[in-house]
Design a protein around this nucleic acid. Structure first.
Lengths: 349, 349
DNA sequence: CTGAAAGCGCTTACAG
DNA sequence: CTGAAAGCGCTTACAG
C-alpha cells in the first residue's frame, strides 16, 4: 500500500479510500491510484484491514461432514447467500462433540462475525464460548425450543413421526427404522431424534411389530444402508416397511434388496430422508422426507447478514422450514397373495 | 490479552509465550497465566497474531464444486493432512474461469501460506497473481507437463484413453463418450481432456463408429447422465459401449437404461470415472476408472507442509498418482443372439 | 526466565 | 477532497 501511494503520489489514506469507496475521491486522484494498483498488482492485505476495522468478514460454519449431499448443499446455499461479502470458514466434526469444541475455539480465534453450527448438542464449554463470543450464532438442521441464539431448521422428531405414519398409512405393520448407534462422543443426534419420533408413533399406535435398528457409527451412507438391510432381512425376513434416517442409507438398502432379488415396493416399502439427488434419480425413485437443505443455508445467510448489519427487525429466534413427505416409487400399498385371493373369492357369485 | 496479563500479574509478552510455547516459561508463572486464561475464557486473536507474525496459518482451496463426492473427498483429505496447523479457506468456481480469478484475488487478500487450485486452466491474471503471491501453489486433479509451481494429480487424457481401450478390448465398436459442453467461460477442462483421450484412441484404432457426445454444461451429475443416455438411445439405439466422464453421470445413465428396460451389461457396457461411492454400492456396481481423490488431498497437504516449512527436499514439480481401470458389473463381453446362434449351429453334427 | 519497545499493514477519527 | 496521528492485538527482536 505504501508502494502504491508513492507511485500515485498520494497518502496511504487516499489509497485506502479508493479501494473502499472510490466515489469519495476526486476522479483524477482516483485514476492515478487505480493505475498504480494495477501496475503493481497490489492486493490489499485483509488481515491488517480486519484487525484495524474490527471486521473480518468471516463467517464460521461447523458441519458433521461435507461428504453428505445435504450438508454440501447447505454449505453452498450459505456461501451463495453471503455472496462476496463474507468468506466461509468451514470445519468438520465427524459427529464428535469434542471435535466441535476444538473447532469452535479455533474458529472463534479468527474472529468471525457470525457462526453457524449444525445441531444443538454442544459441550458446556462450547456453549459458553459461543455465548461469550458476542456474535450471532445460528444452529441449523434442527428446531430447538430454546436455541442458544437463533436456529434455522426443522423438527427431526416430527420427520421420524411422519415416516412412521406414512408407512402405517400404507397398511404396513412390521415396520423398521434404521439409523446409526452412538459410539463414544460420536453421535448423530438429529438422526437419533428421527428414530425417536418413529418409535413414538409405534407406541402411540400400539404397533408392537415395529423395530428400531441402530447399526454402526455415524455418518451413515450407502454402505451402511446395505449392511443394515442385510442384517434386517436375515433377522426379520417378513419385514414390510423400512425407514432409513438418510436417503444415502435408503439407497444402500434398496441396492441390497435388488441383490437379494427382493421386490421394492412389491414386497417391502422403503423410504429415506433428505431428498438426496441419488434418491430422485434412482430407479425406482426413493420415497423420502424432503427438507430444504440449500434453503437452510440460504435462509441462514440472509439472517446472518441482517443480524451483522443490525437489521434484526424482530426476526424470530427459531425458524422452522418444515418437512414434506414425498411418496415416490419405493413405497406402495401391500399387494399380498392372501389379500388378493380373499378379494377374488369375495367377488365370486 | 491485556486483561489476562493484568490478572496474572505479568507482561503481555509472558502471556504470549505461555500460549505459544509453555515450556519456555517458569512453571509457577505459567500456572498463574493459565489460570487467568481459563478464568477469563480468553481466546487469542489470530487476526492480530497473523499480522504480527506474518503467518496466517491459512491454506486456500479452490474447487469447481463441493457437490461432487470426488472433490469433497479431496477437501477432506487435505483438511486431514493439514491437521490443526492450518485452516482451510474454500471457494467454489462452478467451473468458471472468471469466478476463479475473483476467488484467487479474494483468497490471496487473506494472505494464505499456500494455495491449492483444481486444474491448470487459468486466466492470465490468475496466473500472474498466483505466481506473484510468493507462496507455494499446487494445481490438483491434473498432471501438467509444466505446472505453475507444483501439481498433484493424474492424466485426464490417459484416463479417457484407458476407458476407450477397455471398451474396445471387450469387443465393442459402437462406443460413445458422454460429457459436458463448454458454455461461455464455464467449462470442465478435465472432463474435456478425458473426452479427447477417448477420441484419440478412436482415431488411432480407426474406429469410425465411435462418438463423442457433449451434453449440457458442467458440472455433470446423475440427471446429466440420464438425459444424455436418453438422447443417445434415441439417436443411436444400437450403441454397444458408453463411457461417462464421471461416475455420477454413469449412474444416471444406468438408471435411464433400467427405466427403458435395457440390460446393462447384457446389451450395453457402461463405464464411468472417479470411483464414486454410488458406483461402488450400486447394483450392478459401475465399472470405473479409479483416481485417489482423498489421496490427492492428503498428498497435497503433506507437500504443502513441507514447502511451507522449507523442507522441500527436492520434491518433484508434478506428482502423478496414476489411474486404474476397475472393471465391475456394468461392462462385459458382448453376448449377441446372432453370435450364440452361430455357435449353436456350428456345434451341430 | 521476563519485559519494554517497535512494528505488522491497514482503518478510524479527526483536522484542515 | 486529502492527510497526519493513533491504534487494532498481537509477535519479533532485543536487552537484562
Amino acid at each position: 500500500m505504501r508502494d502504491v501511494s508513492k507511485l500515485a503520489g498520494v497518502s496511504t489514506m487516499t489509497v485506502s479510500r479508493v479501494l473502499a469507496d472510490p466515489s469519495i475521491v476526486a476522479p483524477d486522484t482516483r485514476e492515478r491510484v487505480m493505475r498504480a494498483v494495477d501496475q503493481l498488482g497490489y492486493v490489499p492485505d485483509l488481515v491488517a484491514g480486519s484487525l484495524s476495522s474490527r471486521r473480518t468478514n468471516f463467517v464460521g460454519l461447523i458441519l458433521p461432514t461435507l461428504t453428505n449431499s445435504n450438508f454440501a448443499d447447505t454449505a453452498q446455499g450459505l456461501a451463495e447467500a453471503l455472496g462476496q461479502s463474507y468468506q466461509l470458514l468451514i470445519g468438520y466434526t465427524l459427529y464428535r462433540a469434542g471435535e466441535e469444541e476444538r473447532l469452535v475455539r479455533s474458529l472463534l480465534a479468527r474472529r468471525p462475525q457470525g457462526i453457524v453450527v449444525a445441531g444443538t448438542l454442544h459441550t458446556a464449554s462450547t456453549r459458553r464460548m459461543l455465548l461469550a463470543a458476542g456474535i450471532p450464532v445460528v444452529e441449523i438442521w434442527d428446531a430447538p425450543g430454546a436455541p442458544l441464539d437463533r436456529a434455522v431448521g426443522f423438527s427431526n422428531f416430527e420427520a421420524g413421526r411422519a415416516a412412521a405414519r406414512h408407512l402405517l398409512s400404507l397398511g404396513h405393520r412390521r415396520i423398521v427404522a434404521i439409523g446409526s448407534e452412538a459410539d463414544g462422543d460420536r453421535r448423530d443426534a438429529r438422526g437419533e431424534a428421527r428414530l425417536q419420533g418413529f418409535a413414538a408413533v409405534l407406541r402411540e399406535e400400539g404397533v408392537e411389530t415395529g423395530l428400531i435398528l441402530r447399526h454402526g457409527p455415524a455418518p451413515v451412507s450407502y454402505a451402511h444402508g446395505a449392511a443394515a438391510m442385510k442384517l434386517l432381512l436375515r433377522d426379520m425376513p417378513d419385514v414390510e416397511g423400512v425407514f432409513a434416517v438418510s436417503d444415502g442409507s435408503a439407497f444402500g438398502a434398496l441396492m441390497e434388496c435388488r441383490r437379494q432379488g427382493i421386490d421394492v415396493p412389491g414386497r417391502i416399502s422403503l423410504m429415506g430422508f433428505g431428498d438426496f439427488e441419488v434418491g430422485r434419480e434412482c430407479e425406482p425413485a426413493i420415497s423420502t422426507i424432503r427438507v430444504d437443505a440449500k434453503g437452510i443455508g440460504m435462509k441462514t445467510g440472509q439472517l446472518l447478514r441482517d443480524l451483522i448489519d443490525g437489521r434484526d427487525a424482530g426476526a424470530p429466534q427459531s425458524i422452522d422450514l418444515g418437512i414434506e413427505v414425498v411418496p415416490r416409487g419405493t413405497t406402495a400399498l401391500p399387494c399380498r397373495a392372501s389379500v388378493s385371493n380373499q378379494a377374488m373369492q369375495g367377488s365370486e357369485p
